Amino acid sequence: MHFSTFFSAFVLVATGTTGVWAANFSTETIATAAALNPGNYYGAPIPPWNAGHTPGWYYGSGNAPIGIFSILDSVFCGLLDILPFFHCPKASHNPHPYTKAFSNLNCGCEDGSYQTYGLVEVVEDCQSMCESISGCIFYNTYHDVYTKGYPQFTCTLYKKVLTAGSANYCGGQRQPDGSINHIINSEGYYKTTPTA
């Protein structure tokens, strides 16, 4: 059975404090939510170092970028909470400690343990995203700079710990407006296992 016919556009969404409320979602919104799964790299099947890439989601308190379909606001997150694959970060979630692997590089990480990427307003939001994706133990943030680029940080998540030696994506891609991108302010963090 096709996913969009399985769910009605009118859905009951469970919330943590107010019980259950009804929300009206379009078939497109439900399909977008369903695309946030591991098989589709949580909406970003093409990693940022390959041509044709697009961020899979936006998480933050600023203005959502134009052209990003998976905006992780409270209503959309309520829909995601009833689906099995992807859940928005929770404010009350106590994250693991993270250790900085590198900072201030002009290249982003490129690795086969790639899970997904999206856009965040601050580096800490990328850590929250890593906490919410099963198997994520490393995140890389940077600014992807080009004429009409996103002002937010690119947030890329990985399943293994990386080092500055993995920072091989330095930009150089021609953008639709004709400009060539470059990377600045690249930082990498790995999940630290607490010692007893």
Rank of each mutant, 00 (worst) to 15 (best):
M1S: 13
F3G: 03
T5W: 09
F6N: 09
F7S: 03
S8H: 10
S8C: 08
F10M: 10
L12T: 09
V13C: 08
A14L: 08
G16H: 11
T17R: 14
T17C: 12
T18D: 14
G19M: 08
G19A: 06
W21G: 10
A23I: 03
T27R: 14
E28M: 09
E28V: 13
T29D: 15
I30R: 13
I30Q: 06
T32C: 05
T32A: 09
T32N: 13
T32K: 06
A33H: 01
A33L: 04
A34K: 08
A34M: 08
A35Q: 07
A35C: 07
L36Y: 05
L36N: 05
G39S: 13
G39W: 08
Y41F: 14
P45M: 11
P45E: 07
W49P: 02
A51Y: 02
G52K: 06
P55D: 10
P55E: 09
Y58V: 03
S61R: 10
S61P: 00
G62Q: 13
G62T: 11
N63V: 14
I66Y: 08
F69H: 13
F69M: 08
F69T: 11
S70P: 00
S70L: 01
C77V: 06
C77D: 04
L80A: 07
D81Y: 14
D81M: 06
D81F: 12
F86H: 06
P89K: 07
K90W: 03
K90Y: 08
N94Y: 08
H96P: 04
Y98R: 10
F102W: 15
F102A: 05
F102G: 01
C107L: 02
C107A: 15
G108A: 15
G108L: 06
G112V: 04
Y114E: 02
Q115N: 10
Q115H: 08
G118I: 03
V120K: 04
E121T: 15
E121N: 15
C126R: 10
C126K: 10
C130I: 03
E131P: 01
E131N: 14
S132M: 10
S134Q: 15
G135D: 11
G135M: 04
C136W: 03
Y139A: 04
N140Y: 05
T141Y: 04
D144N: 14
D144S: 07
D144V: 01
Y146N: 03
T147N: 11
G149D: 00
G149K: 01
Y150T: 01
Q152S: 08
T156G: 13
Y158G: 01
K159C: 00
V161H: 07
L162C: 04
T163H: 10
Y169I: 01
G171H: 02
G172A: 02
G178L: 05
N181V: 01
S186F: 09
E187T: 14
Y189C: 00
T192P: 00
